[in-house]
């Protein structure tokens, strides 16, 4: 399908969903605190825009900081683990074990250690986001074809050269696409931390609004979060296509 037709068709689908939703809520007389109509959500966003944007900014700040930390840490750690198989064998089981801990359960501890400021929120985002970035990046680095490896060694390459000239470039598309997963994970992390141990951010707004049965405000938060995550993800996708055009050579 041509791009225009495709985007027109998805806009149409969105309109249909909203119309059905709006009609269902009005015809069935669903109370606002159970399920607000799309029009009510839109009005709430307009009404509380300053409050919402301020808290949205807060959530985005902590989650992107967490994501950036996770990206840098994952890249550095995969490079080390790819370089040394003995370090990899020692540390990787520990990392997998850590990944098995539900990170949300750590928020109270992080709040205990670091207070209610930004730190526990950034750390939660980081802790949830780093594993989904590390795994594909490391896998791409350590799965260089045997023949290619042998050819490089025959050409006199050192292990460090194989890592910098082949393993890291090879892992770049995997790393960049894992940032999408990392982004949504980081936002989940920030929102959870805001719900558990914060007095600001979208997570906090959702929690406090639902406790007042202000469901339209909670829905506004969800909608804004979804929209911004979508926008950031699209931007990442554009960067990805530019940086690693070679990885999309088949044109799929």
């Amino acid at each position: 399908m041509p791009y225009r037709v495709r985007s027109a068709s998805s806009v149409l689908a969105l309109l249909v969903v909203c119309t059905v939703w709006e009609l269902a809520v009005r015809l069935l007389n669903v109370p606002r605190y159970i399920l607000p109509a799309p029009s009510a959500i839109a009005l709430t966003i307009v009404k509380y825009r300053d409050h919402l944007l301020l808290n949205l900014f807060d959530t985005l700040l902590t989650s992107t900081l967490g994501l950036a930390l996770a990206a840098v840490f994952s890249l550095a750690l995969s490079t080390v683990l790819a370089y040394s198989s003995s370090i990899r064998e020692a540390i990787y089981p520990l990392l997998s074990g850590f990944n098995a801990i539900p990170r949300a359960a750590l928020v109270p501890l992080l709040a205990l250690w670091f207070g209610l400021g930004m730190v526990p929120r950034v750390l939660t985002a980081f802790l949830i986001a780093f594993f989904p970035i590390l795994v594909p990046t490391l896998t791409a680095m350590v799965t260089i074809e045997k023949e290619l490896w042998e050819m490089l060694v025959a050409f006199g390459a050192t292990k460090a050269q194989i890592l910098t000239k082949v393993a890291i470039p090879r892992a770049t598309p995997y790393f960049l696409s894992s940032l999408h997963m990392g982004l949504t994970s980081a936002i989940v992390g920030s929102v959870i931390a805001e719900m558990v141990a914060s007095d600001r951010g979208i997570g906090y707004v959702i929690l406090s609004s639902t406790s007042r049965l202000d469901t339209p405000l909670a829905f506004s938060c969800l909608l804004l979060l979804a929209l911004t995550t979508f926008a950031i993800s699209k931007t990442l996708g554009l960067i990805e296509r530019r940086v690693v055009r070679w990885a999309y050579r088949a044109g799929l």
């Binding site: 000239k165 990885a247 050579r249």
Partner: peptide, 25 residues
Amino acid sequence: MLFQSPLLLPWRTVLRNILLPIELR
């Protein structure tokens, strides 16, 4: 060395692929 499969690096241009052994040295 030359193998059955060309083993070229897809992120490098042809010229930079050819110069790889020089770079490694």
